[in-house]
Amino acid sequence: MSVTGEGGWYPLMLSADLAPDTTAGSTMLGRDLAVWRDGQGQAHVWDDRCPHRGMRLSLGFVREGALACLYHGWRFGADGRCVHIPAHPDLSPPGTIRAAPLRVAERWGLIWAAAADEGGALPEDDPALAAVSWVPVRSLRIEAPWQGVAGAIGLPEGELAAVLDRDVDGRVLAALLPVGEGACMLHLLAAELAEVARLHDLADWGQDVRARAEERAGQVFLAGAVA
């Protein structure tokens, strides 16, 4: 979970937001990612770029345990290697044609990816996190620098996730994905056995965190009547 150095783990999204056989996009410190889950439930995180023509793989679809690019249908298996080229169905694609997988882990209701191939252990089993199972509440995109949000919600220095015990009733797992310089995603989970009303309170608290962080960053998003 440490963000120090290049080998850290980043919380991409709630596990609940990636159904089997679907794809999603994510962005980690400006690096665009394709996140997908195969039919067996295993999550995969790759750079969001098809080795063929550079098309975004996150716009593709999952077929027979492989991620297929929307552009020409090239399919890539769990290890990233190309397994099928529709225009040449009899060809066995060479092993050099390969999407770029990142290391991935699912812990505490979140999908994590490692920014670098080496260094950085798997997200360690923090006893405070492992002691309970976490109920997904929601994720919010915040258009403000992640460091300010981390400070505002009380994440320990250098951490992107922590159990919080403030502002709202009960224990809260908050995780922060730095999307880029001026944007982040805040993921919120509640300790199990939380009443539904408390989940709503936590979702509202997230909206509050978003509004205050964006106000500090000079970003005010106000809907209104449109001529």
Binding site: A24, R138, S139, R141
Partner: peptide, 13 residues
Amino acid sequence: EHSAYPALRRWVR
């Protein structure tokens, strides 16, 4: 991007 709106993404599906 729909990745910024997980609830909308779920509903669009």
